[in-house]
């Protein structure tokens, strides 16, 4: 009797062998890793173009071995639209944070979704503006303290956190909308599945896919990374529930199954 060892988990090939600039415990690292894994599993690395936003993930292309470009703040889905229309047979991913997607680029977000652009939007919601040091985001929770809501977000003054998935679900065109999170290993697995599904749908030409990922920003939240993961579960998830809001391809398959 002898033992034979094999890798159960290997670092994905699409991930470049460099240290990221992200803080310890930042969710972007997990999402990059999952995205890189998805590129490998679907064998689409060589045909993928990533549009990076303004925000912490602006240097995304330094970590993932795909073609990439930077959009102006908030214009990420518009740039992605321009890329996709010029190269309809490429996989185009718009990777965005909460400021990019829901504040300075709300118009671009809604209209790319409304046109049903065959792109994938990965939305990293960490309830604050990380890159600039932790200011209030459109997704900052009520009473959450940030640099620009020092006494906690007061909805009487700044409104309530915006729910992107619910907002986009009012539109007819999007094919797939799901909210997932990173608060524990099981949630991370589901996040990976959602990313793979979104990219798969794009590959099949199903149309606009949107994955919102609740992610931790322990540095700006002022807590330990593990506590950050817990905070997602205890504070963010009640306001931003996990849900598949739209899955047209699956709905069509189910309807087809019933009919036959």
């Amino acid at each position: 009797m002898s033992t034979q060892n094999l890798h159960m988990y290997r670092r994905p090939e699409a991930l470049l062998n460099v240290r990221t600039h992200y803080c310890a415990g930042c969710g972007h690292g997990i999402i990059h890793k999952l995205f890189a894994e998805a590129l490998g599993e679907l064998n689409i690395r060589e045909e993928t173009i990533v549009v990076a936003p303004v925000g912490c993930s602006v240097l995304l292309y330094n970590y993932i071995n795909v073609d990439g470009l930077e959009a102006a703040h908030g214009r990420t889905p518009a740039v992605a639209t321009g890329v996709k229309r010029a190269q309809p047979n490429r996989i185009v991913v718009s990777y965005q944070g909460d400021g990019d997607l829901l504040a300075i680029g709300t118009g671009e977000t809604l209209h790319a979704a409304n046109r049903g652009e065959n792109i994938t939007v990965i939305f990293v919601n960490n309830a604050n503006y990380g890159m600039t040091g932790g200011q209030m985001a459109p997704t900052t929770l009520v009473d959450q303290r940030t640099l620009t809501s020092p006494k906690g977000r007061n909805p009487q003054e700044t409104g309530y956190p915006i729910r992107a998935c619910e907002l986009l679900s009012t539109l007819e065109a999007p094919a797939y909308i799901e909210r997932v999170s990173l608060h524990n290993p099981g949630a991370v697995k589901k996040t990976k599945k959602a990313i793979v599904k979104a990219l798969q749908y794009q590959k099949e030409g199903r149309g606009y896919s949107f994955v919102e990922i609740l992610s931790m920003c322990p540095t700006n939240w002022g807590i330990e990374p593990a506590a950050g993961a817990d905070w997602i579960k205890t504070s963010m998830v009640p306001w931003f529930p996990h849900k598949v809001f739209r899955d047209r391809p699956a709905e069509a398959a189910a309807a087809g199954g019933k009919a036959s």
Partner: peptide, 26 residues
């Protein structure tokens, strides 16, 4: 070719950027 009536001037110019970056004449 592709024509899009964009949602804004900013978006229109950004779409140009995307297609130009893809090698197209935009």
């Amino acid at each position: 070719g592709t024509f899009i009536q964009a949602e804004s001037e900013l978006a229109a110019a950004s779409m140009v950027m995307g297609s130009a970056a893809s090698g197209g004449r935009a």
